[in-house]
Simulated assay, not measured.
Amino acid sequence: MSGYASYIHFTQQVKQDLQEALQTADYSALFVLVDDHTRQHCLPVIAAALPAGYQLITIRPGEEHKNPDTCRHIWTALTEAQADRQALLLNLGGGVIGDMGGFCARTYKRGIAFWNIPTTLLAQVDASVGGKLGVDLAGYKNQIGIFSEPDRVIIDPVFFKTLPHDELLSGFAEMLKHGLIADADHYRELTGIDIKQADWLSLIPRSVKIKQDIVAKDPTERGLRKLLNFGHTIGHAIESYLLLQQRPVKHGFAVAAGMVCETFLSYQKGLLPEADMLNICDYLLAMFPPLAIDNSALAAIADLARQDKKNTSTTIQAVLLQAPGQAVIDKAITAADIRQALAFYQEKIK
C-alpha cells in the first residue's frame, strides 16, 4: 500500500509473503521468538515458510514477564547458539514479544536485524510502527528501552481467528485513541462497528497511518509524538499498580480507563465541552470492562503517574482533548487532578 513506511507490509497471505522475504534476505541464522500461546496458535500458520534449521526461543506470556530476566533468557539463547551479528530474530507475537524481542535484538552484540509478525490487534496498530523497544523494571512500564524501527513488519489479521475477545478489545482501545487524538472521522467510524465482524484489513492500515504520520514528524518523542500517549499517563499508572498487586490487566483496558480519566480532566481544565466529554466517556465505559480500584489506591496510582517518561522533574504532563480528533500535549496536571479523575471513573462504573 502506498503512503506507508517501506518496512510495513499488509497482507492476507502471511505465509507466502514471509517465505518470499526470507528467500531474498541476507542472514546467517534465523531465530524465532514466541511465547507459549503463539507457539501453539500462531507458529503453525507460518511454519511452512520457515527454512530448515531455524531455532525457536520460547518465553512465558504476559506483561509480568516483560522484564530484564526474560531478556537475559533471550540473550543467553542467542549466545549459546553462537548467533553472530548477521543473525535475524523474527518476533512472532503481541506487543510484549515485539517490544522485548526488538530490544534484545538491537542490544545483542550492539545490534542484529529483527522482523515483527504481530499477532494481536494491539501489536498491529501500535507496536507495528514507532520503534519503541524496551522492558518494564520494578513495576514501572517500559522503564528501560530504546528507539529503533523493525527491519520488516508483516501484518495479517489471520491471527485474529484464534485471538481471545479480550485481546481484540484491548487493541481496539488503541485504535480509538488514534481517532480521538487525530482523526474524528476514524473515531466515529470505529464507534459504529461490531468488532466481532469488523473488516480489519481496511481499518488497521488507517490506524497505522495515523501513528506513522505522527512518528515521522517526531521520531524520539520530543514534541508531537507525545500525542500518542493520550490515556497513558493515568492508564500506565493504573496498569502498573494492578501489576504490583498481582492483578495484571490487558494494556488496552488500562488505557481505556486512562482515556476516561484524561477526557474528564480535559473537561475540568476547560478544554473539552461537557457534551463531548460525556459522549466519549459513556462510549468507553460501555465498551470496556470496569477496573475496580479501591479508594485507598488512588494516592498510590497518582504517585506512579509521576514516573511517566513525558514528565519534567516537577510536573506531571498529560495529553488532553479539545475535541474528538484534536488533542494537545504537555498539559500540566497534579496528583490531586489524577485522584479526582480516578474518583470520577470509579463513580461511573458503579
Results as ranks from 00 to 15, higher is better:
residue 193 I to W: 09
residue 228 L to S: 12
residue 248 P to T: 03
residue 291 L to V: 14
residue 270 G to V: 09
residue 171 G to E: 11
residue 234 I to H: 04
residue 220 T to G: 03
residue 189 E to F: 01
residue 183 D to Y: 01
residue 174 E to W: 02
residue 227 L to C: 09
residue 252 G to K: 06
residue 287 M to W: 13
residue 243 L to F: 01
residue 258 G to W: 08
residue 216 A to H: 14
residue 287 M to V: 13
residue 237 A to W: 09
residue 252 G to M: 01
residue 208 V to W: 05
residue 232 H to K: 02
residue 305 A to E: 07
residue 232 H to C: 01
residue 240 S to T: 06
residue 273 P to T: 12
residue 195 I to A: 07
residue 253 F to S: 11
residue 273 P to G: 12
residue 260 V to A: 02
residue 241 Y to M: 07
residue 284 L to I: 07
residue 184 A to C: 06
residue 267 Y to P: 00
residue 228 L to G: 12
residue 202 S to H: 12
residue 253 F to R: 07
residue 219 P to W: 11
residue 273 P to A: 15
residue 221 E to N: 11
residue 207 S to L: 03
residue 199 D to M: 08
residue 291 L to H: 09
residue 161 K to C: 11
residue 260 V to Q: 01
residue 220 T to N: 14
residue 201 L to V: 09
residue 192 G to I: 01
residue 178 H to W: 04
residue 175 M to S: 11
residue 273 P to F: 09
residue 306 R to L: 12
residue 305 A to K: 02
residue 293 I to P: 04
residue 218 D to M: 08
residue 278 L to W: 04
residue 218 D to N: 11
residue 187 Y to S: 01
residue 219 P to V: 05
residue 163 L to A: 02
residue 290 P to N: 07
residue 180 L to C: 00
residue 178 H to C: 11
residue 278 L to V: 10
residue 190 L to E: 01
residue 295 N to S: 11
residue 180 L to D: 00
residue 237 A to P: 07
residue 280 I to P: 00
residue 296 S to G: 15
residue 267 Y to D: 09
residue 306 R to Q: 14
residue 271 L to H: 13
residue 256 A to I: 03
residue 170 S to R: 00
residue 279 N to T: 12
residue 216 A to D: 15
residue 201 L to R: 13
residue 284 L to Y: 05
residue 284 L to S: 06
residue 176 L to M: 09
residue 210 I to G: 04
residue 205 P to A: 06
residue 224 L to H: 07
residue 304 L to K: 03
residue 277 M to E: 14
residue 271 L to G: 11
residue 210 I to P: 02
residue 300 A to D: 15
residue 220 T to K: 14
residue 302 A to V: 02
residue 273 P to H: 14
residue 180 L to Q: 02
residue 210 I to E: 04
residue 174 E to I: 03
residue 186 H to V: 04
residue 175 M to C: 12
residue 224 L to V: 11
residue 190 L to I: 00
residue 210 I to T: 07
residue 283 Y to V: 03
residue 221 E to Y: 11
residue 281 C to M: 01
residue 306 R to E: 14
residue 236 H to Q: 05
residue 173 A to F: 06
residue 201 L to E: 15
residue 164 P to V: 00
residue 214 I to H: 10
residue 267 Y to L: 07
residue 223 G to D: 15
residue 281 C to H: 00
residue 287 M to Q: 15
residue 171 G to A: 10
residue 248 P to D: 05
residue 165 H to M: 09
residue 301 I to Q: 02
residue 161 K to Q: 15
residue 253 F to G: 05
residue 195 I to D: 06
residue 298 L to M: 13
residue 166 D to P: 01
residue 196 K to E: 15
residue 244 L to N: 11
residue 261 C to L: 04
residue 190 L to P: 00
residue 173 A to M: 00
residue 217 K to G: 13
residue 264 F to D: 05
residue 260 V to T: 07
residue 222 R to W: 12
residue 250 K to I: 02
